[in-house]
Nucleic acid binder design. Structure first.
Lengths: 174, 174
DNA sequence: TCGGTGTATTCACTCAGTCAATAGTGACTA
DNA sequence: TAGTCACTATTGACTGAGTGAATACACCGA
């Protein structure tokens, strides 16, 4: 997901404190998996070290001391590049699904049984996402769509793989 | 991908050396992104520390010293559980695509332009995978199918998102 | 005998991420 | 009014994943 660049992007709107940054991140990108505070500060420290953000002095005020972070020109350049370049589309073809099937076949376990269980789990998750899509805000709906599309992709692949299991188990023995 | 469990799975076939393990891993799972030797040994060290593999003594022989690793009952149990349990289907709905679109909208950049570039990159990658599918072995074909299905899923989502860009930019400003 | 190639492992290091600790303020409450 | 709870805000110590460079032996060909 590139947490550093997402935080940098948020800081490109306006300078902010680690605490607020965490809240913003969660609101937009961390709905299902919120960012830990400690990770925000760890990331900010690395960004500051690399000259991409500037850490202000600690300023006392109503409450504990806080530190204002602002983006630098270098950081702004990074965001620019990041937004201009498309991400690598499926570069590695690496997948846990495939790994489990192969290892199962190598060890003489039933890959079909595993794939069946996986299909069930996928279908159940699809129902969850359908519900989220119906009940949530617009952003949730969009993310749910993303999930559903990829679950469907997995399901297609699972069916294909079940059909090719014999040939695959051949390959696993080599 | 869970490198530890994949290595453990390979070791569940028969004891092996780090070097050979790396070769096996690459042949089956690292076609596009091979595992570094150093990562194999680092992972094996952690597995040994946790009692999941047993590191043999260094044995001199024809060539440099080598160390034979074998799986333990604990390790075997882990593999069993791993193979029995389905993976979490799209649990986090976290995606770089979405992050870039949102950040672009927040900063007043053209998300449409980015999505267009991304679509082009995806289509080009699909042609690559079609070629791999045609020319490669059976395993490559299966992995290519996986990639193609997920690229199609992304493309559907990209189209959907382009259509909703106005509403989204509303949400990005909140 | 010199250098290259293949085998085999280790070391030192960075990045990502987690958990626990610390510390100030304000509000409620026994 | 002392206690503690909740909220704001950051730091520190640590683990796991992953990388690049270094080391070392054996064999082979020029």
């Amino acid at each position: 997901m590139s947490v550093p660049l997402t935080l940098l992007g948020l800081l490109d709107r306006e300078p902010s404190h680690g605490y607020d940054l965490k809240r913003d991140y969660d609101a937009f990108f961390g709905r299902t998996k919120p960012l830990a505070f400690s990770q925000v500060y760890a990331t900010l420290a690395r960004l500051a070290r690399d000259g991409k953000v500037l850490a202000g002095e600690t300023e006392p005020g109503g409450g504990p001391e806080r530190r204002r972070y602002s983006i630098t020109d270098i950081g702004r350049g990074d965001v620019e590049v990041w937004l201009a370049e498309p991400i690598e589309p499926e570069p590695h073809l690496q997948t846990e699904l495939f790994a489990k099937v192969m290892i199962a076949l190598m060890l003489g376990r039933s890959a079909a049984k595993y794939l069946d269980a996986q299909r069930t789990a996928h279908l159940s998750r699809m129902r969850e996402l359908a519900e989220l899509r119906r009940s949530g805000e617009m952003i949730d709906a969009l993310l749910a769509d993303y999930g559903v599309f990829h679950l469907e992709a997995d399901l297609r692949w699972i069916d294909l793989t079940v059909a090719r299991l014999d040939a695959l188990s051949e390959a696993a023995r080599s």
